[in-house]
């Protein structure tokens, strides 16, 4: 099962987690790889946690359990920490550093951990943890809403996915309405460049 890559995506409703995972999945199909994916729908628009798994290669279960994620794409720092049980010591973790405090924090008096603390906690367990302001990259590309595509661009640029850049572009053109293609290609590219630098 050496050629298997299991990606766990996690974020908050509205961040485009589902589309990010589909982007990886459809690109894998385009390249003729075995791929499956699992989503949990239902509460996505109501501020809850959204989780998906994308599994490339020789593996049957579309769902990831504890210790099974080779890559964790976390769109939000708190959710990255909550997702740590899915990872193992050799995982690669990419975290968007911009927090979205839940109402239990903004109103309920619970404490949101310091971002640096979160990063340290993740890094102590998983050395290949990379935290960065991906929302800024999306803004630079022209739309905060393309955060999801930036995130996929980063892991693709890091060389963690056995998928070609051109294939991602084709999938972006296929999945997104024509007026959003340009900004998303730009977002993917920005993420890709940053990802490549991270692994240098």
């Amino acid at each position: 099962m050496d050629d298997m890559v299991r990606v766990f995506c996690v974020g908050v409703g509205g961040q485009g987690v589902l589309l990010a995972s589909r982007l990886i999945g459809e690109t894998a199909l385009l390249e003729g790889l075995r791929v499956s994916m699992s989503e949990v729908h239902g509460m996505a628009q109501r501020g809850g946690v959204v989780e998906t798994s994308v599994v490339l290669g020789k593996r049957y279960s579309p769902v990831l359990s504890d210790g099974e994620a080779d890559i964790m794409l976390a769109f939000e720092p708190l959710e990255a920490l909550r997702g740590i049980s899915r990872c193992h010591s050799e995982s690669v973790i990419v975290v968007n550093s911009v927090p979205i405090p839940p109402f239990t924090v903004t109103q309920g008096g619970q404490v949101y951990p310091e971002i640096e603390e979160i990063e340290k906690h993740l890094k102590d367990l998983v050395s290949k943890t990379f935290m960065l302001d991906a929302l800024r990259l999306a803004r630079d590309a022209g739309s905060e809403r393309s955060l999801n595509v930036v995130m996929v661009g980063i892991v693709a640029g890091m060389g963690c996915l056995p998928l070609k850049k051109d294939s991602f572009f084709q999938t972006i053109k296929k999945l997104l309405p024509p007026n959003l293609v340009e900004v998303n290609i730009k977002s993917f590219d920005l993420g890709y460049v940053v990802g490549r630098e991270l692994t240098r």
Binding site: M43, G47, P102, V105, G108, Q110, V111
Partner: peptide, 9 residues
């Protein structure tokens, strides 16, 4: 960690 339950919008 602080929980993130779904909520009325």
């Amino acid at each position: 960690l602080p929980a993130r339950p779904p909520n009325l919008c």
